[in-house]
Each structure stands twice: as structure tokens, then as C-alpha cells.
Simulated assay, not measured.
Amino acid sequence: MNTVTPRMTHLFQQLGLDSSQLAIEEFIKNHQLDAQTYITDASFWNEAQCAFIKEKISADDNWATIVDQLNESLHEDSVKL
């Protein structure tokens, strides 16, 4: 049984991306989505990354929470007033 609570660094590792704090911040900064684009529809994911994200969202577990946090972060610019 896996008792590790996933974190953003774990998500980035699972997506095959650099998981350093700076790299995560840069990724989020450089991949902002408009308000109408959901995380799974983002053009920057490859097929495997998109499938992983969809799987974790549908599992509705601790991973879904982390994916949701990433989704919110990727939409920060679209909700600024």
C-alpha cells in the first residue's frame, strides 16, 4: 500500500518533467491557459501525459487534488482582474 501523499514534485516526476521548484514555477509561468481551456485540453501535453492526468482526475483520490492544484496554477493569469 502506498502511503505517500503526492505533491506537485511527484506529479511533475510522473509526467516526465523537471520537478525542481524552479522548473515547476517556470513551467506554470510559461504554460498559462485561458479560462476556457481545461488542463486535459492543453496543447503542450503529449499523449501519455494527457492520459496520466485524465486517469488521476477520474480516480478522484489524492492525485486528483494535486492535478487540480496544477490546473488552478495554470489558470492564474486568466482569473486576474
Results as ranks from 00 to 15, higher is better:
A42G: 09
I66S: 01
Q69M: 05
K54H: 09
K29E: 11
H75V: 01
N46L: 05
I66M: 02
K29Q: 10
Q49C: 04
I66N: 01
S43G: 15
F52A: 08
H75S: 10
I53G: 04
S58H: 13
E55I: 02
I57A: 07
D41I: 00
E72H: 11
I39D: 00
A35G: 03
L74G: 03
K29C: 04
V79P: 00
N62F: 02
F27H: 15
T40M: 09
T65M: 08
I24P: 06
L74H: 03
D60N: 14
N30S: 12
E25W: 11
S58E: 11
A59Q: 15
V67G: 02
V67D: 03
K56Y: 08
L22Y: 10
N46Y: 04
F44T: 11
T40L: 08
L70K: 08
W63V: 07
Q21Y: 06
I53V: 12
I57V: 14
T37V: 15
H31I: 12
N30G: 08
S19C: 04
K56C: 12
I66D: 01
K80Y: 03
W45N: 15
F44L: 07
E47R: 09
H31C: 12
D77E: 05
L70G: 05
S58N: 13
D34S: 07
K80H: 02
A48M: 00
Q49S: 04
S20D: 07
Y38I: 10
D68K: 14
Y38R: 14
I39Y: 00
I57N: 11
E25Q: 14
D68V: 04
W45F: 15
L33N: 02
V79G: 00
F27M: 13
I66F: 02
D61I: 09
S20V: 06
I39K: 00
N62R: 02
S78K: 06
S73L: 15
N71Y: 00
A51R: 10
K29N: 04
S78I: 03
D34F: 03
K80I: 05
L33G: 03
N30I: 02
F52M: 05
Q69A: 08
A51L: 06
A42R: 10
A35V: 07
I66H: 02
S19L: 01
D34T: 10
E26G: 04
K54G: 12
T40E: 13
L74I: 01
L33T: 04
D77S: 09
W63E: 05
I53L: 12
H75L: 09
S19A: 10
A23F: 14
I39T: 02
D77H: 04
D60S: 12
K56M: 12
E47K: 08
